[in-house]
Design a protein around this nucleic acid. Sequence first.
DNA 1: CATGAATGAGTGTTCATTCAT
DNA 2: GATGAATGAACACTCATTCAT
Lengths: 206, 206, 206, 206
Amino acid sequence: MKAELRRQHILDCAKQVFAEKGYYEAYVEDVIKVAHIGKGTIYEYFRNKEDLFLSLLIRSLEEWKRTVSISHQDIKSLDPISYFRYRIKRTIIFLNNDRQLTSILLKTGFGFNPHIQKLIGEFEKNLRTHILYDLRLGKRLNILRNDIDLQMTTSILIGGILMIAYHAILTVPNLNEMEIDDLTDKFMKIFIKGMFKPEIIDQYDK
Amino acid sequence: MKAELRRQHILDCAKQVFAEKGYYEAYVEDVIKVAHIGKGTIYEYFRNKEDLFLSLLIRSLEEWKRTVSISHQDIKSLDPISYFRYRIKRTIIFLNNDRQLTSILLKTGFGFNPHIQKLIGEFEKNLRTHILYDLRLGKRLNILRNDIDLQMTTSILIGGILMIAYHAILTVPNLNEMEIDDLTDKFMKIFIKGMFKPEIIDQYDK
Amino acid sequence: MKAELRRQHILDCAKQVFAEKGYYEAYVEDVIKVAHIGKGTIYEYFRNKEDLFLSLLIRSLEEWKRTVSISHQDIKSLDPISYFRYRIKRTIIFLNNDRQLTSILLKTGFGFNPHIQKLIGEFEKNLRTHILYDLRLGKRLNILRNDIDLQMTTSILIGGILMIAYHAILTVPNLNEMEIDDLTDKFMKIFIKGMFKPEIIDQYDK
Amino acid sequence: MKAELRRQHILDCAKQVFAEKGYYEAYVEDVIKVAHIGKGTIYEYFRNKEDLFLSLLIRSLEEWKRTVSISHQDIKSLDPISYFRYRIKRTIIFLNNDRQLTSILLKTGFGFNPHIQKLIGEFEKNLRTHILYDLRLGKRLNILRNDIDLQMTTSILIGGILMIAYHAILTVPNLNEMEIDDLTDKFMKIFIKGMFKPEIIDQYDK
DNA sequence: CATGAATGAGTGTTCATTCAT
DNA sequence: GATGAATGAACACTCATTCAT
């Protein structure tokens, strides 16, 4: 049990370091300094630096699932858009709370670096699966427009929300409940009614 | 003059290598091999690896501006949404054509790594400025909803379009004109009318 | 008493590991795994890795002495060459039975590595003393040629027999009684009559 | 060309270090200190420590072949035993001159350590091939006894001569021509007429 | 006594950068 | 200007040993 606590402690410290420096510029040396442990200790818990990083992402992914998930009862009690809003808000809350993770995700890049690809890729795929699941549900419930491309919408949602989190982290120290609500509402507006004024759309449709 | 050609040649090769491996896993050695030049030569044209990378991004940024820009005459001849569509399409074309750059942007991450931050950050800021300019124009022309947050919309647009580019690169070898048009239309739909059916929105508004 | 048994058990396991991997590539970790003991336990019985190795050699040396030794009564009942043959055969039997030791001796090298030198050196000196004792006995009994150099003959015997043991271990799984007899005879032949045909030697002598 | 000289210089220094400390206790750091080169330089010429060691052995093997080899004309002018003596003497001269190599061979062990086995093994195989070639020649020329086992004789010769070289290195600073001749003669005696007095052999034969 | 989690000095190796030619 | 051999600071990782439990 104490071992598990220590493992978690190392992961916490590693997260802090990776968030600050990014994968490549974060040194194992840095992590052990922050964690106040010996150099060899880290290798008792993780095979190597890559394994440490992967373990970190996996743990955060689990956390994310827990934070964002919603019980089936709750689904019924919410109207579709409120449900969608709930999801978005929870995601923003999660990214706001776990700014270190957000920083890691953004710094490392979603890209397909041969070494890190499988790590970050795994994370991104999971995120995508979750969102795609919601959108498919929305389609079955006849909530979404028929002409909406689900894959693309997922991409825009992920890309958009991450970019917003990135800016929030850069500008505001930590968002409070009200600011999060505000952010969520602004985000929703784009995806509910689009950017343009109705009259412009009407012109365009004709 | 020959020097300038050589510089461009090195940048081309560096781009290829950075696109394939990402900043950290791309070695100067790799670049000089691809460029068929001596190891010292690269340092005649660039202060160091970082400068090489920065120069690369700056050049691509200039290219991007040229590709995406639109003359003032053309603006008048287009209705607002078509203008917006034109911008999006040009961006997709650019990212599609310059897949190496797209790959670099995604691999390196938009993040704020102490070393690379100023490089990628510079690029991202420029991208943002351009889009923000368009959106402000749209606001002045009374095209956009009043309740739209410009900064956020910019974030969503950048994040979304990059994420889409990332997936397009991963899945399709190279997009043809038709596919680009299709992609653009799908993208536009989200931002024109939102994701939800009108009746759902009506329910929510009440 | 139980402590002594445990010590012996550790030595047995250490022998197995050292034989398989050699001194440097055998890890204390490997030994404790084979011995099914805790990591600290080995240091209850041995000062350090070097001490463990030395203890191993000392024990084997004692065993070797017992295996090869012959009672004084038996000496009288044997003719000189048979006595010599007996010694050789016993040595081959010993090396064959204790292939792990043979492997260790050959892998570690007789060399004079600063750290291991004193260990292996000790073993080699003992081996040499024993053989030299026999040869001196032979000289006193007027059995050996007068022009034979005892030190050199000892070297050749040790070097030769170890090299043969090495090849036997590499090629044959385990020698049976008959094969050992055969090996002994072949070995003896060289040292009894030399390599060359009598007529060749006669020519050379003139 | 200068590169080749530098390579040879590094090999010389590496040989010195390996001879003094053995493979495992010789550090790359030691070699670069002796060679007065930068740490990276060694990796310009050799893939890694193992490659450095292997290259060393290969070079010495070539040298050994040259030193020990004898022209075809010379073969005809020598009687069989003189030819054999010539070979032995040349080998002793080689091992005496190249005491560092001898030390390396003895320190590393002829053994079959998984990592070094293929290196030392290669060397030992070559040595064996050469000697075996001579012995087979002797057999064809009807010089050697018919009851002599060639493989075993080869083993005894290699083992014996290495063990002698080991002792010579330990005891005498450097052998002069006369001492080498003396050593060769003593060595030859064993293999020409055996150890025992004729009358003892006669008794045994009966 | 036995244990095994914790340790850190010590290694091999990499790769951006320099500078003599 | 062009080159590439030389460099060494930096880094991940190992493994014998210790010591609190």
